[in-house]
Design a protein around this nucleic acid. Structure first.
Ligand code: FES
Ligand code: FES
Lengths: 158, 158
DNA sequence: CCTAATCTGCACTTTTTAGTCAAGATTACT
DNA sequence: AGTAATCTTGACTAAAAAGTGCAGATTAGG
């Protein structure tokens, strides 16, 4: 249950494009430099974001990437789904099925229930976060996080 | 942010051993059969659980695996840490640092703040779940999940 | 039309994770 | 002691994810 490289760099690139603001565009060499990844790799990640409909690219001289829509309409949960998939997908239990009583695409599996709970818990945070929320500094972000309704316990973030 | 094979099978094996109850032991061939993985792979996973201190093994004829301590004292969060690591580890931002203003082991990174929030959110569920909780059927488990204090929104689980 | 700056697509290599194999060590039973 | 059932270990192979390379397409500007 770790973040994949795709998720990490993908989100960071998206934030960087968001920073450029309406009309401002960011090129692959710029992002490569800023995030410390190779241009080729940045390009690969950007492709995923583009195919996901979060950014659009302009080719040719003076080209680069821009947000495909306003930052406040880009939900981080959706971005993460595209970049790295979900923790709990029901297909998982089908393909990784065992043979005995529990965990056999069983209608009665407590483990599956737990995964679902974890997924819901994550969604609770990621579905409320938009790119707009990330375009602020860490302190403001922490304030935002503490304000997530129903996310008690997150108060432990300092 | 997907479950790794280690996490999935590891937890399932642990549950299976838990089912055997105090004194009851489960062998590698049995687990292999039940979970639909090869004996060798089951052995590899069990080793992780053993080194993590969750199960203990008895060798020789009539050997097998037993819980190292009572199910209610085995916290699933701890098991997951051993099986697959955590979503947000502060070392991550050091090793994957970029070079520009944001995300450079920066003291001011909103993305990092979000990862922390997600981690806390997951911990909220996994630190409250013990193996005992998993040794019940899915329906009871769902009831348990809904009762997590502060986990509003999890009510959407049906 | 030419050039330089840019994105695009796909195939490739490297690294990590998943999964296998085989030889060895331990124990219960006779 | 001998045998069969069991776990233990480390090295091996296979698959997936991460990361690279390159030839091509697009655009702005002269
Ligand atoms: S059915 Fe998927 S974990 Fe049990
Ligand atoms: S410092 Fe780690 S994501 Fe920004």
């Amino acid at each position: 249950m770790k973040l994949s490289a795709n998720e990490e760099y993908g989100l960071r690139c998206l934030v960087r494009i968001g920073y450029a603001g309406e009309g401002g565009n960011v090129t692959i060499p710029e992002m490569s430099q800023a995030e410390g990844v190779s241009p080729a790799y940045a390009a690969k990640i950007l492709r995923v974001l583009r195919k996901g409909g979060f950014v659009k690219a302009a080719r040719g001289k003076d080209g680069g990437y821009t947000l495909a829509r306003p930052a406040e309409s880009i939900v981080i949960g959706d971005v993460m789904d595209v970049l790295g998939g979900r923790i709990f997908e029901s297909s998982f239990c089908d393909s990784h099925a065992g043979q005995a009583a529990i965990c056999t695409r069983s209608v009665d599996c407590s483990v599956r229930s737990l995964w679902r709970a974890v997924q819901v818990s994550v969604d609770q945070v990621l579905s409320k976060a938009t790119l707009r929320d990330l375009l602020q500094n860490e302190e403001d972000m922490n304030t935002w996080v503490r304000a997530i309704p129903g996310a008690k316990g997150l108060h432990s973030i300092q």
